[in-house]
Design a protein around this nucleic acid. Structure first.
Lengths: 201, 201, 201, 201
DNA sequence: CATGAATGAGCCTTCATTCAT
DNA sequence: TATGAATGAAGGCTCATTCAT
């Protein structure tokens, strides 16, 4: 199929590249300028395409951002799953939150994007349905990890795993909103405090 | 000044009323539809004025929202100060966070507005300067209250008062973003846990 | 009110002038290029205004054209009414159709505009309701005139007045569609033939 | 040519099928949504092809519609020719118009398409040339039929055969534009009236 | 001070058309 | 020949802002 070396792309590959570029450009732009503050022109220009290319790949701005979010959540869930696996296999549990936060903090853009979409969802029922679907998966994963960490420590979590997950997601979002520098310190402070005060299982 | 009885308003009073109506209409609209999702027309129509009235009173949408925020923060700071006073006078300290949250929770609109403006600040340096000025006052007030609560309990806060204040402001904003119902439970869980694990002063 | 001579216009006058210019520009443009072939830019540029001025005066392209049609139909109905009055007062009835057609033929643009809007109505239920409302008034007027002419001639019309009116409106539209030159000859041929073959009342 | 049985189509046959499908899809779409209201995508999607297939077969939307019209006119002329033949062979002449109108009325879509193209021609000189060429053939056929009917009745047509043909084409188009239900009644009313008042030959 | 007509830039989206596959 | 991704020009419409009244 590849008769002329690297340069030749099949149509599907080419389309995939375009989408990838658009997604990345959208991620950066929305994190910086917000959902409403980002026009489709902003995205396509940054990606080096015409406006038409956008609509040839996505039905709407919302559709593109939903795909973007979907991918991100998948990665997030995968990362949480990986750490959960390690915890279950007996690895040092105390560093688990650290490792998760490092991944998260490494890209505060993602968190800001998430906040933007969360706000958009708050106003757009259709979008909210999709958003909440993705969000609840992330919550489940995080809840499972938190539950495992408490179990490992022989403690009973002071609230339901889902509520605990919500608590930490809220904390992280709130700190990102403040443009706080080291999320980690604060998150760990809260985590360790909750762990220390939890009753034995 | 009142030459014709109660009905006559001085020019300044009349202007004040216009501003009041605009501010209230803006608060509702922005909380519901977001900063970018609210047009000046939306605001003036809801307030029952023409677009011109807006520009007679404010230089821009930003300026109006900044004034709105200013007023809110003043109230917030006053509320915090009142509770601080009570704590210092020896009133029951455990109910202090409750009372503050009740005021806050009673109007999640305000919190959403705050989030909107915080995001706007994240993108607009000029606005950020003003916003941060107000925010740091609120933080100081909250920090003072937290410090007093820990002192009263004979404990040493596990982080600087400002960081503690940031922590709780973040938590509340994050929960509002999630459209969580009872902020109170979660916030108190964290507060009490931090208090319980704090070292004696 | 007019402190500076002719040049000064009240706001209402000024707005009226703008609307008048937009209407006239739209009439010419739509007659020439069709409903879909006429953009709002076409109209505003021809009228010497910005695109914004359009939306400051009309809700949509449809709304403007509906007002345009309304005015035309009113004139049309008035003309028909005038001729009907003359016929009833015993003036020479044979020249009645002539006089109406002269007015009509004098501005084939109007007829083409009518055809355009009729087609638009055929595809747009909302617009159709408004269009049909206006059209039925014109039909009634024309029907009344036709009925009067037959009565005056002591004849019974070979179809209901409304059907007769439809017949002639259709004939005129069809001829305009053909870019036929002398509508009059053909229309009169049909009219006189129908009159000649009508039974005595 | 058919090397693999019935299923295999020669290239030309295959191309022919594609064109056939595109033409039929275009006919339906344009009759329903108008010339400008029909996009090439609309046509190709309805036909089950890609947009590319369109441009492989036609130079433009105009070109396709012209071919469509050409075919229709051919059929129309054939039908008129057939009826003319019958009239000349002495068959019952009074039912001739009926039979023609039945064919016509059975597919008001065609008439609406014709109106659309007539309007398009009114604005597009290039297209007008082609359109008028086809139209004049139809007119000739219809004129011949009308002349024959009058001759058969021993009457002299009250206008030139071409003008008579134009008259009836206009009437039909105008009635279609009105979305009138029974064209037949009205057309026959006019035809019989003209016949009745015609002088003997 | 308040009004609201007009501006003009910008937004999302549609579409005829091109061209590498 | 048929495909469909990409283009680029419009199109309808919104909106912050200006300014004569």
């Amino acid at each position: 199929m590849e008769m002329h070396g690297v340069a030749r792309l099949t149509r599907e590959e080419s389309r995939g590249r375009t989408r990838e570029h658009l997604l990345e450009a959208a991620r950066v732009a929305v994190a910086r300028n917000g959902y409403d503050g980002t026009s489709i022109s902003d995205i396509t220009e940054a990606a080096g395409f015409s406006k038409g290319a956008f609509f040839s790949n996505y039905e709407s701005k919302e559709a593109l951002l939903l795909e973007l979010l979907r991918r991100h959540k998948e990665q997030d869930i995968a990362a949480l799953g990986r750490i959960l696996g390690e915890v279950e296999q007996g690895k040092d549990a105390t560093s688990a939150p650290d490792r998760y936060l490092e991944g998260l903090g490494g890209d505060a853009d993602w968190a800001r994007l998430d906040i933007e979409l969360q706000l958009h969802a708050a106003r757009n029922p259709t979008f909210a349905a999709d958003y909440d679907g993705l969000q609840s998966q992330t919550r489940s994963s995080l809840a499972r990890l938190i539950a495992a960490l408490f179990e490992k420590a022989g403690k009973r979590p002071p609230a339901s795993p889902d509520d605990m997950a919500n608590l930490f997601m809220a904390l992280v979002h709130g700190l990102v909103l403040q443009r706080a520098r080291d999320l980690g310190t604060t998150v760990k402070l809260v985590f360790e405090s909750l762990m220390a005060t939890a009753e034995p299982a």
